[in-house]
Computed example of a mutant assay.
Amino acid sequence: MPVPRPLHLAAEIGGRPRYDAGHYTRLALLAERGNLDFITLDDSFARPGPDALAVLARVAPGTGRIGLVPAVTTTHTEPFHVSSAVATLDWVSRGRAGWRTAVSDTAAEAALFGRRDAAPHDELWHEAGEVADVAARLWDSWDDDAEIRDVATGRFIDRDRLHYTDFTGRTFSVRGPAIVPRPPQGHPVTVVDGTGAAARETAVRHADVVLVRAEDPVTARTCREEIRNRAAAHGRSPDQLRVLVSLPVELHTGADAVGLARLIADWYEQDAADGFHLIPADVERDLPLLVDGTVPVLQHHCLLRRFYPGATLREHLGLARPAGRYAARSPGGRHAPSAAGRYAQNPGGRP
């Protein structure tokens, strides 16, 4: 008997740093063959190797359905640039982008920038929440129909359909509007590892997908219920939130792949999670066993789909495309600066 709600699967494809885009594209295509919702690529300022967001932007044209979720550090970075980069990934992937918010709390990483000292974890996650908030506002600062692209008249945008964000947080302010049109998904999917207390507060306010680490299904189910209840307390619909358990996996044989399928099925049927984010010990060994062993077992038991239901990551996850919060002001709202004018000013940054 099929379960009434879909099981969501995602996998991390990082590991030792690689500098050839083909390596990551091959892994992404393998995950796509297994109909996984998305892949993640970890990153930090202390990690050698290319920037995760840039890597997945390179991978995007070589894939067709798999969601692409790089880790993006919100500390020491400009929120305006973060928003623009994630929106660009959504455009080049045709609506398959997400981003996993990360923070930097070490003195060594702070010294790379020389702008400020390392801050306490609570402060960093509060800032990460503000970055997620202003990113969404910037994605909404262009209405869906703001682009005109009329060659005959030379008009590219309708200025009545661009909006200021006018956001002021604890450590930065952003005026906007964005310099990238509204992304295909409206908002690329925001993923937060909500295991820690500070991160969980950010997750329940801003995340579309919350990752949690748990040792058993009872703990995982308790976390899921708490996250959904706290999201509802903030006026959010719990049904527009997905909670995935992050599980380290180490597979050596086909029997291990079958055992993992049994564990996933057992936890899922106990309502421990909406799905699982799998972290391979050795991605080049474990991911093929996951796709060719675990996935078919889950499909055989009608727990996992055999094809993608749509084209975007939000469609994979069953999440609605959000309406633009400023669209009701158009036309007749407050004018934003022209395209040329926006490039001439500092659109948003830290004071």
Rank of each mutant, 00 (worst) to 15 (best):
P61E: 05
E78I: 07
H76P: 08
V72T: 02
A85S: 14
H81G: 00
S84G: 11
V59F: 04
A54E: 11
P79K: 03
P70G: 00
F80K: 11
V82C: 08
H76G: 06
H76R: 08
R65A: 10
L53M: 01
T73F: 00
T77E: 10
I66N: 02
A71Y: 09
A60Y: 08
A87D: 07
G67C: 08
H76N: 09
G62L: 07
L56K: 04
T73H: 15
T77H: 02
H81L: 14
I66L: 10
S83M: 08
R65P: 01
V55H: 11
L56P: 01
T75D: 14
I66F: 05
G64C: 02
G67S: 14
V55S: 04
S84L: 12
P61N: 08
A60R: 07
P79Q: 06
P70H: 05
H81W: 08
V72H: 06
H81Y: 10
T74Q: 04
A57K: 07
V59N: 10
S83R: 10
P61V: 10
A85L: 12
V69P: 00
P70D: 05
V72C: 03
I66W: 01
V86G: 00
E78N: 15
A71H: 10
V72K: 05
H76V: 09
A60S: 15
F80C: 05
G67I: 14
T73L: 08
T75R: 09
A60N: 11
S84H: 15
A57F: 14
A71K: 03
P61T: 11
A54V: 15
V82H: 09
L68R: 04
S83T: 04
T63H: 02
R65G: 01
A71V: 05
T75W: 04
T73N: 14
G64E: 10
T73I: 13
A85W: 12
T63Q: 10
L56R: 06
V82Q: 15
L68G: 09
A87I: 09
V72I: 10
R65T: 04
V59S: 04
I66D: 06
V82T: 13
L56D: 03
A57L: 12
V86P: 00
G67W: 04
P79N: 05
I66V: 09
T73E: 13
E78A: 02
V86A: 00
V86L: 05
E78Y: 02
R65V: 07
V69Q: 00
T63R: 08
A87W: 08
L53H: 01
V55P: 09
A71P: 00
F80H: 13
L56Q: 06
V86D: 00
F80R: 03
V72Q: 06
T63G: 09
V86T: 04
L56V: 01
H81E: 06
V59Y: 03
